[in-house]
């Protein structure tokens, strides 16, 4: 509208044609990305809000209101998937924060073979999750597995890591930590290296012990890294699918099912509406847990 008026008045005054100059930063640069993202990510996300309320065969859908969600919160194995998801996310992100911090402290100290240690800790991040899953499934074999054979040498009777319903979820979570702690470590290393030396020197002049140094300087000043590690691994934990699928397929029974594996199982079984409801549940779960968590961690950070 405005552009049109400008053009008209410009032509009247005898301005050269094509009056309004185009921006050197045209908005159509957004277009390729926007189309792909919009069609293949946004549109299905919005569509899921409707289809989660239907009984759906991909060819036709019958609106059934909240029935899928009711089922999700009534069927014990589905509820267990929900609980498992949260447990899994809390265990993995908690361990990654602690171990990541510890390893980062170790790897920024003047320890020997630092480069080797950093590489060794980081490499699993880059390896195929399915490959890692299969390898550890073998290593965790209750009778022949290397882990239990090793424990037997120490006189310990190892548990059925993946066969014991009480342990299966935690075992998978531990493998997740094994694979992902390298990323937490490098994020922490970046955070620790960024802390100015002055603080440590000032603390030393004030007579701080090593423990006080850590508690009053390192920990508060590496808070941004902590926030990043927690949020990143928490979201990753809530969404996790491939490792669980490669190791236990949610078993034994439903002992290690998460929302993501439930979504896949319901999809395979042809319950498309229910599967999509699972998606919406996961979406809500992430929003409800991660948004307040992010705000909490970032507020503390702004406080400094």
């Amino acid at each position: 509208m405005t552009a049109l008026t400008v053009t008209e008045s410009a032509t009247r005054k005898g301005h050269p044609a094509g009056a309004r100059r185009r921006s050197p930063y045209p908005a159509w640069f957004f277009l390729p990305a926007a189309i792909i993202y919009g069609v293949l990510f946004l549109a299905p996300t919005f569509a899921s809000l409707y289809f989660s309320l239907t009984r759906w065969t991909l060819f036709n859908s019958v609106f059934i209101g909240l029935e899928n969600f009711v089922q999700f919160f009534r069927e014990p194995f589905l509820v267990q998937g929900l609980v498992n998801t949260v447990i899994y996310a809390v265990i993995t992100s908690g361990l990654k924060v602690m171990l990541g911090m510890l390893l980062a402290l170790l790897l920024t100290s003047n320890i020997i073979a630092r480069g080797y240690l950093r590489s060794v800790v980081f490499f699993p991040v880059l390896v195929s999750t399915v490959g890692v899953g299969i390898t550890f499934t073998v290593l965790m074999h209750p009778t022949q597995g290397m882990i239990n054979e090793g424990l037997a040498l120490l006189g310990i009777d190892g548990p059925g890591w993946l066969t014991d319903p009480r342990l299966a979820l935690i075992s998978v979570a531990l493998v997740d930590v094994w694979k992902g702690v390298g990323l937490a470590t490098v994020i922490y290393i970046a955070g620790l290296v960024a802390i100015p030396k002055d603080y440590y020197e000032a603390a030393r002049i004030d007579g701080a012990t090593r423990w006080q140094n850590f508690w009053y300087v390192t920990l508060p000043l590496s808070r941004p890294a902590t926030a990043t590690v927690i949020i990143l691994s928490f979201i990753g934990g809530l969404r996790t699918f491939d490792l669980i699928w490669a190791m236990t397929r949610g078993g034994p029974g439903f002992a290690s099912d998460t929302v993501a594996s439930v979504i896949y199982k319901q999809y395979q079984a042809g319950f498309y509406g229910l599967s999509t409801a699972g998606n919406v549940v996961l979406f809500v779960l992430i929003a409800v847990l991660v948004v307040p968590l992010t705000m909490f961690l970032n507020r503390k950070q702004g406080h400094e």
Binding site: Y37, L40, F41, F51, T276, F283
Partner: peptide, 22 residues
């Protein structure tokens, strides 16, 4: 939208449905 894309899990079955259509 960038933040949403980092956080939100993709809606699988609707995506399949849409891809079949396309």
């Amino acid at each position: 939208l960038i933040l949403a894309g980092l956080m939100i899990p993709p809606a699988v079955v609707p995506t399949i449905w849409l891809m079949q259509g396309l």
